[in-house]
Amino acid sequence: MVGTAPTRPPAPERRPPGGPVLQDSVTEALATAFFEELASTGYARLSLDAVAKRAGAGKAAIYRRWPSKLEMSVALITAVAVDSAVPADTGTLRGDILVFLTEIADALRKPLFSRIVPDLLAESTRNRELRQALFTAVRDPRRGKAARMLDKAIERGELPADTDRELALDLLAGPLYWRLAVVQTSTAQDYLNRLTDKLIAALAA
């Protein structure tokens, strides 16, 4: 077993129209099994039969909650990557960026994330439907939350009003993802502090 689900996902509707009440414990077991199976096999080879078996449930339990592998994947990944992410509001750009980077680092250090994220990115280059779904459900909302962090810094006068937001958003996420997910080099708190200072210098330039 690779590990447990990165976080507890919200349950789908408790009672689909005309259907039975959905048990939260089964939903959580399916979510945990999904992430473990995804980390083990990758998205392309992921089987809903294998997810159900790992969860100790029937395949029908999956279809009562999610109509397809794609919709199950997007819903659970969104719950972890977007719904559980709350933008920091420390009152300073430095504090907000440091919290932002720390949360990303904590997530990418988890065995499940470190195996799932690169696979999803690779699979997205081959699977247009998955790519569009992840862009709409995960990438765009996460960038929107980070953009609000930048907007607050502009309102406080910490960044110029003409800050290039698109470039700034790339700078915020790129270096840390490269270090942890691609180069796979560990990060100590001192690194995150130094990276925060460099990012602020670059954004304010």
Rank of each mutant, 00 (worst) to 15 (best):
A79W: 08
D89K: 07
L93V: 14
F113Q: 02
R115I: 06
V86I: 08
R94E: 15
E123I: 12
L121A: 10
T92S: 15
A79I: 02
V80F: 08
A88D: 05
L112H: 07
P118I: 06
L98F: 13
V82N: 01
I104G: 12
G91D: 02
I104C: 09
R128W: 05
S84K: 00
V117I: 15
L120H: 11
L98Y: 14
D119F: 08
T90L: 04
T92Q: 10
L93M: 14
P118Q: 02
D119H: 10
A105D: 14
A122D: 13
N127A: 07
L120M: 14
D83T: 04
V82C: 03
L121S: 07
I97A: 03
T102I: 07
E103N: 11
L121M: 06
P111W: 01
V86L: 03
E123M: 11
L93H: 09
P118S: 00
R115K: 14
P87V: 11
R94Q: 15
A85V: 10
V86M: 00
A122P: 06
D89N: 06
R94W: 04
R94S: 13
R109G: 08
L112W: 05
L108N: 10
L120R: 09
S114Q: 04
P111H: 01
P87G: 10
V82M: 02
T92E: 09
D96M: 02
I104V: 12
A107G: 07
L121T: 07
D96N: 00
S114L: 07
L108D: 14
T102Q: 14
T90A: 04
V82T: 04
L120E: 02
D119T: 05
L112M: 14
L101F: 00
A79R: 05
L108A: 08
V80L: 06
F100Y: 11
F113A: 09
V117N: 04
N127K: 02
A122E: 15
N127D: 15
P87S: 10
I116H: 01
L112F: 02
I116T: 00
A107W: 12
G91I: 03
D119S: 08
R126G: 13
D106R: 09
E103R: 11
L98V: 12
V80R: 06
K110I: 12
A122Q: 14
D119C: 02
L121F: 07
V86R: 00
A85E: 08
V86N: 02
T92L: 10
T125W: 10
L101R: 00
A107N: 12
D119R: 05
V117L: 09
V80H: 10
D89P: 01
V86G: 00
D96L: 03
L121E: 05
